[in-house]
Design a protein around this nucleic acid. Sequence first.
DNA 1: CCTCACTATATTCCATGGAAGATAGTTCTC
DNA 2: GAGAACTATCTTCCATGGAATATAGTGAGG
Lengths: 150, 150
Amino acid sequence: MTDHMQVFADLVRYETRLYNVLGERLRAQHGLTVGQFEFLRIIGGRDDCRVNDLAHEIAITVGATSKGVDRLEAAGWVSRRPNPQNRRSSLLGLTEAGRALLDAATPTFENELRTWLGDPLTPKALDQLAAAVALLRETLEDARVGMPTG
Amino acid sequence: MTDHMQVFADLVRYETRLYNVLGERLRAQHGLTVGQFEFLRIIGGRDDCRVNDLAHEIAITVGATSKGVDRLEAAGWVSRRPNPQNRRSSLLGLTEAGRALLDAATPTFENELRTWLGDPLTPKALDQLAAAVALLRETLEDARVGMPTG
DNA sequence: CCTCACTATATTCCATGGAAGATAGTTCTC
DNA sequence: GAGAACTATCTTCCATGGAATATAGTGAGG
């Protein structure tokens, strides 16, 4: 029988280190953190993205997301425009500079990911991993569990 | 072909939420964070554990580890005793209260882990996940990559 | 044995996230 | 259509981790 505690430890340590390597490259080549890259990727990937949408997608609080968007806006990569549906909220979008940065950083990110996620596994093992993790994520999200306060 | 970016996103979000659920239970029932639980588990699992060993195992910096141990020591769960091999370092150990707490918290942790990691997957899928993640972790560690500065 | 490079830990400063509260806008009810 | 309840975001305060630095202690040469 598989030791859950061991799998948990391996998962967390793998991810911590993966996050670190990805961050090193993004930082060196584009001046970005992994978190910022993911903000840009999600904002760039959907029209009419609100702070709330971003927070749910990233699984952090709305407050923290709001602050993160402040920083990206100050850097000139993201803009808030009024939401015509609801005057309380803004719609987020990439600026031209933000889009260019995302386009430049994406190959860097994908290369590292290939090296440390794709290459070590057989295609079949990678597919199985992808399916398992998608299911596990879905299980938690369907149960609406592990959400931060926001 | 499997989308690496999607697997990465699922991995990170799954873990974030898993960490949150585990933390909620540990906090509610034992007044512990997941990080503290892992400190206790590792310290309790090896004799003669040094700050450096703990830092490498957890994949955070030595400085952060030192501060974490300070907090556990202040709480009365961990003790530093002089390392007879080397006067610069201390050996860490659980106090009686720390051991009791770890023993009490372990079943809580394992139950949640079973619910959100073991139960959703078939035994075979869990084994495959365990093997894949162990290999991925090992790949990064063998390459000595993704280590924080410490 | 002295000095220098190195190692183990501790400490300081800064950035980021969570929790809770504040604000403004929206919706539901009567 | 006025007020209560709710929602979306922002803001403030606090805890934790990284990076850089400080402080001992150790070991290798000469």
